[in-house]
């Protein structure tokens, strides 16, 4: 129809594109955009779609070429996609979104405060009679400091260090994550701060070595996060190959793809040794399993994306896993 008319804004001589957006499931046409600039980005298409459907703001939209394929990135340009001058795109609603930073802040503040409820032995936690019968063992104070330190460090990193590539995540994930983090924090704190807590079998020796290992792992984890953040100093959002830097803690990059996870597991192992508490050990195990899955995923992505990826690296444990 419009193709005989002179393109209005087009500075070059290309024909404009037509874009139809279908629902990914029902294949019903949701909108038809006539005359779209060939060099329009997906971001712009999202905005046009948003104008027609105010409730689906851009972050909620997943726009795909194939109903079952991967979502298109914001920066992708219409004319570089494998489509004719009439492009068919598929839309999927991702559900309400929430900012990544907000998510982490909520996830990590919970454990911090929940732990205190138990540390200060709120009367409703252990009952009144036991509350006055024993004063906490020094390791209980130490554990509280370490636990708080761990989560405060994560909060600070979330705000000042990490440069996330995703703006948002689906709202329903946060419920799941919070249940996980908060629930476990309560469970661990209950045992560590219990009036009937039994201190570690090997006393000071055990506690001190655990604290040293804990601090080293925290330092390592922090160094890796800084190194990852430095990869994006120019404001890009792509993933690059991270390499060891001058900081010796980052030398773990010689051997694994996700040293931050390795260090994170290390901190939890130290915390288990420090408190000699079975629930902490179980939580450590779960974290390890979870992070191993993620690390393997990320490792595979690195291998796929970079032909020259260092072959010595393993996902999470040097030479092993």
């Amino acid at each position: 129809m419009g193709q005989y008319r002179q393109p209005i804004i087009s500075t070059c001589h290309f024909v404009s594109y037509q874009v139809e957006i279908l629902d990914w499931k029902t294949k019903k046409q949701l909108c038809f955009l006539d005359k779209v600039e060939p060099n329009a980005t997906i971001r712009e298409i999202r905005l046009m779609f948003h104008k027609l459907y105010p409730r689906w703001y851009p972050a909620r939209q997943s726009i795909k070429l194939d109903p079952k394929g991967k979502s298109l990135r914001d920066e992708e340009i219409l004319q570089h996609l494998p489509v004719g001058t009439t492009a068919t795109l598929y839309f999927k609603d991702l559900g309400p979104q929430i900012g990544w930073t907000t998510v982490f802040l909520i996830e990590y503040t919970g454990p911090l405060f929940i732990y205190f409820l138990f540390y200060f032995r709120m009367p409703f936690v252990y009952g009144l009679d036991e509350r006055f019968t024993s004063s906490p063992h020094p390791v209980v104070n130490l554990a509280c400091i370490c636990h708080s330190f761990h989560y405060i460090k994560r909060l600070i990193e979330t705000v000042f260090v990490h440069r996330f590539s995703h703006g948002t995540m689906p709202l329903r994930n946060i419920v799941k994550n919070c249940l996980y983090y908060w629930g476990f924090a309560a469970w661990l704190a209950y045992y560590i701060n219990h009036p009937l807590y039994t201190p570690p079998s090997y006393g000071k020796k055990q506690i001190n070595s655990a604290v040293i290992m804990f601090l080293l792992c925290e330092a390592g984890n922090f160094s890796i996060h800084v190194a990852l953040s430095d990869l994006r100093r120019n404001g890009s959002k792509i993933r690059k190959i991270p390499y060891p830097t001058k900081n010796p803690f980052t030398w773990l990059f010689f051997f694994v793809s996700c040293p931050n996870y390795t260090y994170e597991v290390g901190t939890w192992i130290s915390f288990t040794i420090m408190t000699q508490c079975v629930p902490v050990g179980l939580f450590t195990l779960l974290c390890f399993i979870q992070m191993t899955i993620w690390a393997k995923d990320k490792h595979c992505t690195y291998l796929r994306e970079f032909k020259d990826y260092p072959s010595l690296r393993m996902p999470i444990i040097p030479f092993l896993l």
Binding site: Y191, Y197, T198, Q276
Partner: peptide, 9 residues
């Protein structure tokens, strides 16, 4: 039941 050296109940 607590107390035990594994701090678990």
């Amino acid at each position: 039941s607590l107390p035990n050296k594994y701090n678990f109940s």
